[in-house]
Amino acid sequence: MGLNTRAALRSCGSALVALIVGASVLTADAARADGTPAKELFGTKTLPTQAAAASYGFYSKGCLAGGVAIPTDGPTWQAMRLSRNRRWGHPAMIALIERFSHDAVEKIGWPGLLLGDISQPRGGPMLSGHASHQIGLDADIWLTPMPQRTLSYQERESISATSMLQKDKFLTVDPSIWTPAHARLIMLAASYPQVERVFVNPAIKKKLCNTWTGDRSALGKVRPIYGHDYHFHVRIKCPADAKGCKGQAAVPAGDGCGKSLAWWFTDEPWAKPKKKPEKPVKPKFAMLADLPKACTLVLNGPPPASEQEATYGTAYRSVAAVPAAAVSVEAIIGAAADTPLEKIPVPAPRPPLQ
């Protein structure tokens, strides 16, 4: 091949790269111009952006770069609703889930975690369901214990989580379903220092307020919100080095069992607005332009070569990702770690991203 031919090919290659980059920008610009909702843009991405892990924006207004997926099965967890493709998260979130699942088995005797939604591959608004879970720092954990067998794909799609509420009583925990182990599981989740909040149904919060006799220092993190009667929602803080991540205000001091909880059991949360707005309220954060500017790059960034390259493993061994929480856990749960983490069987670590 002659020098002129090679030069021509290099020129064509450079032009092709420029064309691809330009097309990506045009795609993002077109998405803003034609009114395509951001949820449709992010909801159709099947793999993350190949980039350094970063959460951009707020929990309900943002996106995720460099997300990793928790394996569908681990020694102490199974992921549910696989068809949704929402088992992605920031490595710090995935690391916490793995450590939490191990601690739940070893410290309090919980059979293992059934994992609900975490985030989409690139975060962002979802096609259905959540307003949050957009930056890879939220995760739903079922209150149904993991069975001692591997569930089939179809079972993971069809099995329903168990509500903790009585069917014939408003906001009342069913004593035939709720157990002290459920309380220990939620309080264990709240005990980790990187956990910002744990959302539960108001009835569950009330049950904890009335019955929890252990250390109540983390009880204030457990926040009441409607729904969340068949699962609880774990939210972690923005990682320390996450410059583009917008954190949430710290929870108020105290255990959260006073007037703020009583409000949920009044008619006020159900009351209709006294005065209708003069103009229709525009949906918030619906378009790509409403998200942080970095989300355009996240949306159009290159994916890893395969899902396997983006699947996490052995995350709880990473001290940098998950600070040791033994002191806080022990103070609340009062159980000793009988088995060192180094001896726990774990899936093979994910291959490094190229």
Score class of each variant (00 low, 15 high):
204 I>A: 08
219 L>A: 05
302 P>T: 10
244 G>Y: 05
335 A>G: 03
174 D>H: 04
190 A>T: 05
349 P>N: 09
71 P>K: 02
88 W>D: 00
126 M>C: 01
109 G>C: 06
300 N>S: 14
209 C>W: 01
254 G>T: 04
51 A>C: 09
7 A>S: 10
107 K>A: 05
123 G>W: 00
348 A>I: 09
177 I>V: 15
81 R>I: 07
198 V>T: 05
195 V>I: 13
236 I>E: 03
19 L>E: 04
151 L>I: 06
157 E>R: 07
45 K>R: 15
259 K>V: 11
263 W>E: 10
227 G>E: 13
256 G>R: 10
124 G>S: 10
180 P>Y: 12
36 T>K: 13
84 R>A: 14
96 L>K: 02
56 Y>F: 14
194 Q>I: 15
202 P>I: 00
313 G>L: 00
319 V>T: 13
146 M>W: 03
38 A>D: 01
195 V>N: 02
45 K>W: 00
207 K>T: 13
42 F>R: 03
316 Y>C: 14
32 R>Q: 14
307 E>R: 15
46 T>S: 13
95 A>V: 06
298 V>H: 01
224 P>R: 02
75 P>D: 13
3 L>D: 12
336 A>Y: 00
139 A>G: 13
176 S>K: 12
90 H>T: 06
279 K>C: 06
281 V>C: 05
63 C>W: 02
315 A>F: 03
251 V>D: 07
71 P>D: 03
262 A>S: 13
209 C>L: 11
299 L>A: 07
55 S>W: 01
254 G>R: 08
64 L>F: 09
55 S>A: 15
230 Y>Q: 12
17 V>D: 10
133 H>F: 07
148 Q>I: 00
108 I>F: 07
62 G>I: 02
21 V>I: 15
242 A>R: 08
15 A>T: 11
105 V>L: 09
171 L>R: 11
338 D>I: 05
149 R>E: 12
107 K>G: 06
113 L>K: 03
230 Y>P: 02
287 M>R: 13
343 K>M: 08
61 K>P: 01
150 T>W: 00
307 E>G: 05
181 A>H: 09
